[in-house]
Design a protein around this nucleic acid. Structure first.
Lengths: 136, 136
DNA sequence: ATGCACCCTGTAGCAACTACAGGGTCAAGC
DNA sequence: GCTTGACCCTGTAGTTGCTACAGGGTGCAT
């Protein structure tokens, strides 16, 4: 299949597919006589793997490691587990951070009663961290 | 005060301060005879405002709008409220997304029982979105 | 006078794309 | 046979919000 078809099949921007090839995340496919990229099923499933991992928030470098693992099925699975576990921890930390931030924002907004900027509680709160109730 | 002092006073990297000046978020300060930047209290509180807003996750462009508002204290406060409310919504959406993602990751990792990559449930799950229980 | 901490400008790098510009290819329809 | 339009190619530059140099100047203490 050509790049446009692969793009539709995986929900990946064409430019992104070429970008992945350029950085060596996807192997360079064969070419047609007209120099068009020509992909097969192996390419499609590799790209699906990459997209799914990106959707789950893995970095390109993490995905590179995961791909290396899946390319060599005799290797131990520990590393995949370690990468995924560390990533899960990061996600949980991010959620915790954002939750503090949400509470702080809600508190700031709740104090706004309209009126002019000189009296604006939002602006005042942003000016002065000491109004905050938690660290962020 | 000189830039190093302002940096320490606000917990902002020196390069970041110069960057904010370059993009027009902070006004260019006066200079000493030796061409060193020389800051006053107004600069420090403006920078604190910026840092605090950044910590709360506002973009540079949002901060620009908030600064414009606070520079003109006769203006209505509605816009500050709108910016903050929209931002809060985005934060809430991000938390919801990350929570789905966390559940999915936890589920994937829970299935890993060690062994070799060919049997790895983590890698299998990443290959195939259809194993997922929710959208992400 | 020489070390050291500090300051300056300007440019390039990071992640992970995205968006062109400027061109080539191919099939359908007139 | 010629145009139209959809598709493809390469290469480069832009995005956000910084961060990290390189290569130089300044100011003060020893």
């Amino acid at each position: 299949m050509k790049i446009g078809e692969l793009s539709r099949a995986t929900g990946t921007n064409i430019e992104t597919i070429r970008y992945y090839e350029r950085i060596g995340l996807l192997p360079a496919p064969g070419r047609t006589a007209a120099n068009y990229r020509s992909y097969g099923d192996a390419h499609r499933s590799r790209l699906s793997f990459v997209r799914h991992s990106r959707d789950l928030g893995f970095t390109i470098e993490e995905i590179r490691s995961l791909l290396d693992l899946s390319d060599d099925p005799t290797r131990e699975c520990d590393e995949a587990d370690r990468i995924a576990t560390r990533h899960l921890e990061q996600v949980e930390e991010k959620i915790a951070q954002l939750s503090l931030l949400r509470d702080e924002l809600a508190r700031i907004i709740g104090r706004c009663r309209g009126g002019i900027a000189a009296d604006c509680r939002v602006i005042e709160a942003l000016s002065d961290h000491s109004h905050c109730e938690n660290a962020h």
